Every structure is written in structure tokens, then in C-alpha cells.
Amino acid sequence: MFRLSQKDIEAYHQKYFRPSCLRALNLRFSNWDFFAPFYDKTHDQIKVPPQLTLTPEDTVLNYFSILREAENIYGRGCGTIGQAKLPFPIAYNFLSQEYQNKLSYEGYVQTFSGIGHTSLIKLCRVPDRRRGIRFFYEIETIVGAESKNAEYFGYSYGFITLVKEQEGFRISEMSRIEEDFLCAPYHGWNHVGEAVVEVEYGHWCHLIEHIYPTIRNEYIKSIYFHGKDGADYCIIFAELTNGTDIEIAQFRKAGNAEWKQVYMKPEEECVMD
């Protein structure tokens, strides 16, 4: 069973209690010149310049760059914050037509309630043979406290799915989950990738023969193990700012065959499909 020494526990707690110091990735539009042409337009009058959505990566980076100084924060006496609400109608047009049909513009703006600034700090394209173009992302936001005249940093993560439309790549689905900084360091094995693999794929599924050393590449963690079925497996995690490892993909390799993406469900009697 996964165990931590006292020294590891102390380091483990500090990892959760320290916020991110990663540089922002969404810095493409840093002056008024970009926003000026959209100043007096509503969301249904805006056409996104096609050069902003030529590739999936461009679409995501430009989307978050537009939203960087978008503000839907509670009342402050210091005057205008960033670009105020001007970025919202532009960013809304980065959503696919189908997504817009599900989420009204008013509902979209409401999802940013309390947020005064957004920094994209992690972005990684996730292999997904089922859902197509998909990214993992993490953002750092400055959030206004409704009950008092103060702000604090908040962290969220999620996945973005994109589709190709006639005028470029658009966001067709997007999830956002707020990160916890208190429960994670005090409870549970399921915040640590190595423990997740050992418990879920080992103790639950009885699949692991032996686990290989973890391979890290910045915030991406790849955990390999050799299965009792003779195949090799790779479970990929992304580490959040709060220290939690989030599983983002699974691969299996039988013998000399190529790595193939799989979808195992340890929580559902270890079904693979």
C-alpha cells in the first residue's frame, strides 16, 4: 500500500499550500489596439478574425488571451478593472454554434461571476481518439470576495474540446472545476498519481505485476506498469497547482505492438472499453 514518511508528509503539505508561480501563457493581446474595433459591438455583431482560429492551439491561446483582463467582479471603488466586460462578447464567439445554442451569452458571462483577471498557466493537448481535439488546462484567477472589499487567488482546471467549423476551430465543450487547497493535503491517496495507480489498477483491478519508475516532464507525470496479462500500461497525469494529480489518458501496449489508447474504469469493476 502507498505510504509516506513523516518527511514526505511535511513536503506533501507544503506542496498543497503553495500557489503557482508559473508564468502566464495567455499574453497575446496586451494593448487597447486589439479591442478597439469591438468597443461598441454586441456579441451577435462580432465576427472573429479568421487568423485567430487557424489551429486548435491558436484558438485556445487566443481565447484565454482575450479573457485575461475580462472582469465580472463585484463592485469596487477603484474604477475600471482591466478591459472590463469588453472581452466577453468577443470570447463568446470562440464557442461553436452548437455550444452557443446550449449556453446563452448571458449565461456565459455569468460563469465568470466574481472573476477580475485570468491567467492561463497550464495547457496540454490530450490524446483522445473518441472525442477528437481535446486539451487539459489550468487557470489562475483573481476573485473578488462578495462579503468584503478584498480579492484572492483561485485556481481551476478542466478540459476543452474543439471542432473544426467553416471559419476555423471553435470550442465545442469546456469544463471547469475549482481546486481545493485544504482537503487534499489532509485526506486520501487519490490525490497522488502513484497511489492512484497502485490502488485502482493494482488492489482493485489486480492488474499490476510491477510498476516502473515515474517519468516527469514539467507538470505531466507518466506512470508505467507491467500487467499480469503480459501487456504494458501507461497512465498519464497532470499535476495541478494544489498538488493533486489528475488522470488525463491511458495507454496499453501488448508485446511489440504500438501503444494504443484505452479507457479503463477501475471504479466500475475494472471494465476496459
Rank of each mutant, 00 (worst) to 15 (best):
I160M: 07
A11I: 12
E267T: 07
E267I: 07
E198N: 05
R252H: 07
I46S: 03
F237M: 12
E178V: 15
E178G: 14
T42S: 11
K85W: 00
Y219I: 08
F29M: 02
N190R: 10
G168H: 04
G79D: 09
D58F: 06
I142Y: 00
E151L: 11
T214N: 06
N256S: 12
Y212Q: 14
A84P: 00
K228C: 13
D273G: 00
F35G: 09
E268Y: 09
I9L: 15
S65T: 01
R68K: 15
T80G: 03
T161R: 08
L103Y: 01
R23W: 01
F159A: 06
E140D: 04
R68S: 07
I81N: 11
R176S: 15
L207R: 11
Y263F: 15
K221P: 00
P37H: 05
L240G: 01
V60E: 02
L67I: 02
F34S: 08
Q51T: 11
A195N: 02
K41M: 11
L120F: 07
E69P: 00
V143T: 06
K7A: 15
G188L: 04
Y219M: 03
G188S: 13
G114S: 04
N149F: 13
Y186D: 09
Y186N: 14
S119W: 10
Y233H: 07
S113V: 06
P19V: 05
G193P: 02
M1Y: 12
H191T: 14
V126W: 01
R216G: 00
D232L: 08
Y233D: 01
Q100K: 09
H191Q: 10
P89R: 05
N242R: 06
L61N: 02
A36G: 03
N26R: 00
L120V: 10
T244E: 15
Y12W: 14
G116A: 15
T55A: 09
W259E: 13
E57S: 06
K221V: 12
H187V: 14
F159T: 10
H226K: 14
M174E: 14
L162T: 08
S20A: 01
D58W: 04
